[in-house]
Every structure is written in C-alpha cells, then in structure tokens.
Write a protein that binds this DNA or RNA. Sequence first.
DNA 1: CAATCTTATGATTAAATCATGAAAATCAGG
DNA 2: CCTGATTTTCATGATTTAATCATAAGATTG
Lengths: 231, 231
Amino acid sequence: MKPKILVVDDEKDILELVSYNLKKEGFETTASANGEDALNLIRRDTFNLIILDLMLPGIQGMELCKILKSSEESSSIPIIMLTAKNEELDKVLGLEIGADDYITKPFSPRELIARVKAVLRRTQEKPAKDRVIKIADLEINTDTYQVKKRGRLIKLSATEFKLLVYLVQRKGRVFNRDMLLNGVWKDESFVEPRTVDVHIRRLRAQIEDDPSAPVYIKTRRGIGYCVDGEL
Amino acid sequence: MKPKILVVDDEKDILELVSYNLKKEGFETTASANGEDALNLIRRDTFNLIILDLMLPGIQGMELCKILKSSEESSSIPIIMLTAKNEELDKVLGLEIGADDYITKPFSPRELIARVKAVLRRTQEKPAKDRVIKIADLEINTDTYQVKKRGRLIKLSATEFKLLVYLVQRKGRVFNRDMLLNGVWKDESFVEPRTVDVHIRRLRAQIEDDPSAPVYIKTRRGIGYCVDGEL
DNA sequence: CAATCTTATGATTAAATCATGAAAATCAGG
DNA sequence: CCTGATTTTCATGATTTAATCATAAGATTG
C-alpha cells in the first residue's frame, strides 16, 4: 500500500531529484512535466499526494491547484507547492489557493520527505482540513485570511496571521522561539529569536482582551509559547 | 547531550569561523582540514552532524559526502555542504548526492546556526510515541511540557521538567551531580553541583506523595540520584 | 553511639527570561 | 522613487526562576 505521489515540474533536474528521493523512501511516483498532462493523469489515476511547481508553462501551477481544489473528486488530494525562494508573495497565495503546504527551492531531500510525510499523516488522520478554525471567541478563516473575534473583524499582518494559525493548529504543544522561526518563518530568513516576542506581543495586543493576562497565547517561561490545549 | 559537529574545510579561516560560532551556541566541534582526516575521525567517533566544504583538496567534499551517505553506519549522519556562491549547479548536485542542506559562502553566523539547528531538529525529531512518557502514576508529555499525576496537572518549571525527563528517560541509571549538570544544563554553565540538590528537592515536592520517602527519584547516597528502574 | 560524612531544607541573593517602547531596516504599492 | 506599513532589532525595566549558602537532618562507620 505505497502512497502514490504525482510530481509536476517542468525542470527535469528537479523532477528527477524529487522522484528519486521519494522512491528511496518507499513512495510510488509519477512524473509530469506540464499541467495538461498532470490533469489527465489525475483524471485517470488516483494519487495520494501531488507535488506541484508553482511556475509551470501552459497551465500555471497555481491555476492547476485551483482547478483541483475546486473539483469535487480531486479536492481532497493534498497538494504541496514548490516555489522559488523569492516568489515571496506566492507563498501566501499558494496556501490561499488551497495547497496544503509548500517548499521553497532549493530544498533538502530531508525537508521534502519530512513535509510529504507530515501532509500524508495529516490528511490520513483527519479527513478534511478545516478552512475555518474556531477557538474560544476567535474564528480564523484560512481562506480569506480573516480573523474575527465575537464577530468583529481583526486585522492581522501576514506574519501575525501565520503565527496564530501555526500555534492554533498545534494547540497544546509548546514551541520555543527557534521552533517557531523554523515553522512559521520557514528557511527564508535568519531572524533573531527575540523577534518572535515582538510578534507575539502584537498578536496578543489584537486578539487578547487583556494582553497582560493572555487567554489564547500563553508564555511558558524558559520554554516558549503555546496556545492552551484546553481551548 | 551536546551535539557533536565535525567541520571539514581546508581554509583555516572558515574552519575557525564556523567552529567559533558553533561553540558559542553550545555545540561541541571537531575540525578537520581534509577529507582523509575527516574519514578517520568519523570512523573513530560518532558525530551528530557534519559540515563539509564542497571544494576540498584530495578527497573532494562531494566525494566524501557520497562515501558517507553510501555506508550503512554513516549514512544517517546529516551533512551540511558549504559551497561558493557561484557554484550554482553544485547546489543541486550537493543535494542529489545526499547532503541534507547547504550554505553558500559567504554566510552569516546566524544563517549557519539557524541551518545547523534546523537540520538537527529534523533529524533528531523523536517519533510520536516517545512524546508521552508514562511511569507509575506519572504521565509526562514532552510536547505540551505537562506532567500529570493520576490525571491531575502538575506545574513544573523548565529546569525541573528537563531534569525529570532526563532521569525518567534513563531510569535505572544513577547520575552524580556533575553528570546531571552536563546532561540537563547542557551548555557549559558553571553551576555548583549542590544546586542539583535543590532542584531535586523542588521536583520531589511536586511529584512525590511524601517527599521524605520518595518513590520516583531516589537518592543513592555517595553516588547521586536515579529513577528506579523497576517503575 | 559519637564522629564524620552526605543529603535535605529554608532563606537570601543572583541571574535569566520575558514584556514593552521605540527606533531602524525592509518591503509593497502607488 | 517616495510613502506608509510591516518587520526586525535593540535597550530597558519587571518578574520569575535559578543558584547559592548556612544550617539542620539523616546515614554510615568504626
């Protein structure tokens, strides 16, 4: 019962690199160099996961992702986007259009495998990933990037939003600053761990009734931050 | 407990720069100026990570990487490649031959540290089952940093928690104070061995029913402390 | 059953960590 | 290329936690 993974990329090197590493890990892979072929393959076969380059000729990766996510039969197939490092905006977009995760090029095989496994684990455990997360008085919409508190809209910056979603989706677990930088900031930047404090503060200032007695984001002194698992 | 890192580079400056920064972050480093020495060191000692210059005289870095990755006993050691900026193609190659990440020269110390930590975190991530440790009436969750005793939550400080986890994960073994300082306090902190007593006491006060007749953490007079192997 | 260890305890001091305000750097859109 | 917004860094003060020390209590040994 090897999971079947479709890899879509126009660069032959990347295609091979990805396929090689996935096979080595025991996955079954199919390769496609463009979006049209990919669509046909998906119609004919069922895949457990699709790894998709954002920048494809013809049907753009983004377009393909949208098509797949909007169609009933394919919307449940998880998608990992591959993006070039400086397509910064696309990162957000990649998730907005429904991708389940993304990896920035160049990437290490280990990161690739780790993310593939993580996504497969997530999607196999929970049938559908919630687009709207509700926690206490908060309502977080990962489609529209909006956060509402008791119905009132809260405006968060991109980083604040990602940080909040990251913590909420993993509520209960405590993360130290390095872990958060790794998870939320990814490998794009090398930021001082202390910077996390500032974002936590800004987040609290906006979502907490009383930032000095936070309900959502707790400080675990000497360890890091977490969203209470009880919420 | 300190991760051991082998740094291989023929440029003395780089070697020192890297070693210095790693040590400052609490890593233990060994330096090697060429591939042959590196191989010998790896055979004799076990490293948690290898930082490898792509361009080495003698055994090329790439070659060394391939050798290490193809051998059973060394293939699990993660490798970070150092590459000159314009060896663009080699980046991909570096990963193809099994490296786990790479850093382009010149690099900032911060980037170095961030990548080293990221790779170590990825490779040392414990499987999910080990994240909750159960011992007698205690339930220790290393994700949430929570300890429960017969279902009731116990609030431990960061040091207390680490000390408990350290002992429990090695139950049966007796540690003297210096060993505990080394293992739990990690970085080269200059702490009085007697300080351990105080932490043991505080830990007992919270997890033992009767701290004067401890069940979990036993005192081995003249030797040190241990968690009973029978639990 | 002292004498002499070693460990436990309580109180005090020291240190590490976090929150905060503000400035500098960076980014995105016009 | 400018402008406002966001992000990052830095410095400082508050707070919690940790480290130390003095002393009490408890073992061990001859």
